[in-house]
Computed example of a mutant assay.
Amino acid sequence: MNERSYKRILIIGCSGAGKSTLSIELAERLQLPVLHLDALFWNEGWVPTPKPEFREKLQNELEKPAWIIDGNFNSTIEMRARYADLIIFLDFPNWLCLTRIFKRRWMHRGRTRPDMAEGCEEKVDWEFVKFIWTYPKKKRPGVYEMLERSSAEVLILTSPREVKEWLSTVHA
């Protein structure tokens, strides 16, 4: 795999899989700009950007010549996939994602994490836990359907170990 040829990399997966961590690491290695969808969508106090405005902002980012974009937002996954030349799907077990979410909550308690919009303090609520727990049954099938239709190269990583091994092969 020749990473130099990838200019638009989409990183998707369940919350807690490590999308933002991977995007930051890849951006450093490949010298590409990163866009965290959470930071684009959420406004201070967890106020969502209206969907038409969000899609317009996202479209402007997608048209740029190079990027790494991480995030879920299934309503825009097809839109993002059309522009990507590499899609990385972190397909991790839901128990691992939940564990990481609670760890992240503890590490960033009372403040905003770096990949989130300012004024959005780290939180975990029942709705979020339920989303993560049901991701394999409710969201994963649609992700796989999209990946099958995509013209981008697809890389599916199923464990942190696979991510680490793959990253060891990535050099600018």
Rank of each mutant, 00 (worst) to 15 (best):
K57L: 13
Y6T: 10
G16I: 06
E127C: 05
R149G: 04
P114H: 02
T134I: 06
D85G: 14
K51W: 13
F92D: 12
W42A: 02
R149P: 04
A66K: 05
L22F: 01
W67G: 04
D85E: 15
A17K: 05
R100M: 11
D70K: 13
T49I: 00
P65V: 06
E3S: 01
L157E: 13
R105C: 07
E3W: 03
F41M: 06
R104M: 12
E122I: 05
P93G: 13
G71Y: 14
R80V: 12
L30I: 00
S159M: 09
Y83W: 14
G142R: 11
S159L: 09
T99A: 08
K7N: 00
F131T: 09
F102K: 03
D70M: 12
V170M: 10
A172I: 05
E148P: 05
K123Y: 03
K64D: 05
G16P: 04
K130C: 12
S5Q: 02
Q31V: 05
W126N: 00
A66F: 03
L30Q: 01
E118V: 00
F54R: 11
P160E: 10
W106C: 13
E145G: 04
R161Y: 07
W46V: 04
S20R: 02
V163Q: 09
V129P: 11
S150L: 07
W126H: 00
R161F: 08
L32Y: 02
I68Q: 15
G18R: 00
S168H: 11
K164Y: 15
E63T: 07
Y83H: 15
L155Q: 08
K19Y: 04
E153L: 08
E127P: 06
R109K: 12
E28C: 00
L58E: 13
W166N: 12
L30H: 02
M79D: 06
L90T: 06
R8Y: 03
K138M: 04
T76K: 15
K7C: 00
L167H: 08
R8P: 03
K137M: 00
S5M: 01
L40P: 11
C14I: 03
I87F: 14
G16H: 07
A81H: 01
R149I: 04
E25S: 01
I69H: 09
R149Y: 06
R8Q: 06
P114T: 01
